[in-house]
Nucleic acid binder design. Sequence first.
DNA 1: ATTGCTGAATGG
Length: 369
Amino acid sequence: MAGPGSEPGELSDAELLQLLLAEPGDRALQPGDSGKPNSSSDLPLESFSEVLTGDSAAEKVKRKRAQTPLEKYYLKYLCVTDLSTQSWCEQQMVYGRELPQLQAPETVVLLNTGKSIHLARELEVHDVVKVHTTSKEDSWAIKILNLLSMIPVLQAGGCVRELPVFGVIEDVFLMGIIDELCYSAKGELELRELKTRGRPFMPSGAQKKRDYFQVCLYKYLFDAMVQGQLKPDVLTSHIYLRLKQPLGLQIREHAQKAGFTVTCFGDLLELMYLNLTLSDIPSIDCLKIEYSHQESNTLLGTEVVQFEEEKVREKAQYYLAYWKGQREVQGVEIEEAWKCRSCSYSEICDWRKKRAEGPEQRSGPKKSK
DNA sequence: ATTGCTGAATGG
């Protein structure tokens, strides 16, 4: 059995503490003795390793154990596509973050082509302008202003592209951008996600699965927003944004043009909350994915995705468990080893190495389908 | 970088 806790090197909190206290030459942790002249207010009080000196074994163990992937990469939020890429291969997603420069050139070309097609489509419905920002609140203000500008369009029955969504799942803040939101002939609010493809045929099941999950997450977040779950404190508590932070001049001018008078970030959050909840925008009724061929620009097919909230939540919970350090990174199951052929990281992949050495040593969770 | 921390999505 190789469940959590039986891994070599894994220590209980009590054992760790003992190790730390037994460390010779370390300094006792005392109030006011941190040696830091100015203590920043958002400094976590958590880590013992802060006051230890040298590369003690205890320190290494503590660091390894204390750092969840979210902390390791300094992430205060995740993107929807972080989770959907995880559904393709979690190990690859991690390598993608650690070694982005190792990505195969042909992949880069494919992605860039997709990128420019998406940009062209975005420009069909609105202009894109650069706005100068001076704080992280300013950068978030842009997302929120974009969202605010789209609400009346939707209310009037119009169509929007690149709509920002955010919210919290399993105590992790998630952010994403919905490709397109329109009302269908039936009057239903419909999400459309365009996927451009290098080859002129529909994707494999594995790709569809990933794309389904992606759009389901969008609906999950969007619905929560229009149902009033995006209160201002969600952004302050998860991303540590400051309500009283004054917005930059360009942001305020931009807001004014759109008809919003704001001075600080909190003003904007209030407006967002009120506009989302009072605007009577419905939940998303229909999820569609359109696959089209990059070169010929022909539609290959459309998939309608059914939304099952419980399943989406379960999947999200599973993927987020990695980020929260509740389980180790997982590569593809043996049946999906074909994915490795197109993976930029197959040569260096630890998961594959472990596989080659002896798959019987690794007892991952049973595949549940 | 001792400090610092992020356009999302882009496709197989």
